[in-house]
Structure formats: structure tokens, C-alpha cells
Design a protein around this nucleic acid. Structure first.
Length: 202
DNA sequence: GCAATGATGCACT
DNA sequence: GTGCATCATTGCG
């Protein structure tokens, strides 16, 4: 049996959590079935001073989850079409979260394909934040849900750690904000993984 | 492989 | 009314 990651795991500096989250298994319990994949790409959004973070203008109904306790989901709708999944980190009151950007599918793949639409190649199943939410049926009903609870419908399980030498860093994707926000190397992914949303620069 | 474009819901400085 | 932490499709190399 794999171990569900505890709240203590998320109650740490966001970049530390992000680094250790890469390679762990994201699990969605749906209709008695497990839909799961290895996390291969994440982005960190840290504090109100992060000009790319939704929290930069303070707390609003939309981003309230980021200000809440660690180990909860922050899910939002973007472009009116796509959902994005974040996991909240650090102590309550400090807005920080990690965007899950891509998965390597490992469990319930046929069900995930059905949720996505079978015309897509396997490579595109969960490659991108909007795609992975569609593949795992993640929507606003799961916003602010506790991923550490015993009865969670969404959680993370410990897996083998990825060596630091296998993790690449770079600027975040699609962010607005000032030059500091755009250049901060707060996107982390597994080097050479075919499942990440975009190839490494260069 | 790349760039351009339309889709679409909702919170908001 | 504006602007998104995006994706699928189209058209072109």
C-alpha cells in the first residue's frame, strides 16, 4: 500500500514541496475507481509579492483556498473552459500553492481517455494543466477539498524520490506580471520526460 | 514541427 | 467590459 502524503508534507517552503512533489503519484477516486498518474511537471506560486500569482491583489472569493491551510486543493476555471489544479502549501494565511502541470498516466488509463475523448493520442492525455483536470474529472466541486483527509476523493501518494539531477528548473509558463515573476525559475519538471507540457528551452 | 485563432465562464486591480 | 497560470483546430513548412 502506498502512503498518502500528510499535511506536514505540504506545510513547508513551497519550493521544497514542489521539488519533492515531482515523481509522486496523484490519485483521483471516482465512481469506485482509481485514476492516477505520476506528477512530472509543477509550478510554484509563492506569496502576495509573486506578481504572477492570483494572490497578488489579496484575498478574494476565487483565491481563498490559497490563503487557507496546507494540503488542500485550489482549483479554478480559466478561459471559461479549462480547470487548473493546485495544491496549497505553507501555513494558513500565507498564500502559496503548486500548480500541477502534467502527469504520466498510470492507473485507469482507459477511463481517463474516455473522459478526454478517444481521438487524442496517449501522449496528450494529461500533458498540460487543463488536460490533466479533464482526464481525472477534476472540477470546482473539488476546490478547497482536503487532500490529506481519510475520505479524500483526491490525494497524493508517496513514490520513489526523483534524484535532484533528474529535475530541471525554468521560468513558468504563460505568466503575466513583472520581469521578476516571468523569469523566476519556479517551474520544475523531470528531465527528458515525454509527458511534460512543453520541451525544455534550448 | 510552428503560429494564429476562436471558444467560453467568471471574478475583478 | 476586460483579461485570463489553456486547448483544439487550422494552415503552413
Amino acid at each position: 500500500m502506498s502512503q498518502k502524503l500528510s499535511r506536514d508534507f505540504f506545510d513547508r517552503p513551497t519550493l521544497t514541496v514542489a521539488r519533492e512533489l515531482v515523481g509522486q503519484r496523484l490519485v483521483r477516486q471516482r465512481e469506485g475507481m482509481r485514476l492516477a498518474g505520476y506528477i512530472v511537471e509543477v509550478e510554484a506560486y509563492i506569496g502576495m509579492d509573486d506578481q504572477a500569482s492570483h494572490a497578488r491583489f489579496g484575498r478574494t472569493p476565487r483565491n481563498a483556498a490559497m490563503f487557507g491551510p496546507p494540503g488542500h486543493a485550489y482549483i479554478y476555471l480559466i478561459y471559461g473552459i479549462h480547470h487548473c489544479l493546485n495544491l496549497v502549501t505553507e501555513h494558513e494565511g500565507f498564500p502559496a500553492a503548486i500548480l500541477i502541470r502534467a502527469l504520466e498516466p498510470v492507473e485507469g488509463v482507459p477511463e481517463q481517455q474516455a473522459l478526454r475523448g478517444t481521438q487524442h493520442p496517449l501522449r496528450n492525455l494529461a500533458r498540460g494543466p487543463g488536460r490533466l483536470c479533464q482526464a481525472l474529472d477534476i472540477n470546482l466541486r473539488l476546490n478547497e477539498s482536503d487532500v490529506c483527509a481519510a475520505n479524500a476523493m483526491l490525494w497524493v501518494e508517496a513514490s520513489d524520490a526523483i534524484p535532484l539531477t533528474e529535475i530541471a528548473y525554468g521560468p513558468r509558463v504563460g505568466v503575466a506580471g513583472d520581469i521578476t515573476a516571468r523569469s523566476a525559475p519556479w517551474r520544475l519538471w523531470i528531465k527528458d520526460s515525454p509527458w511534460i507540457s512543453r520541451r525544455a528551452p534550448g
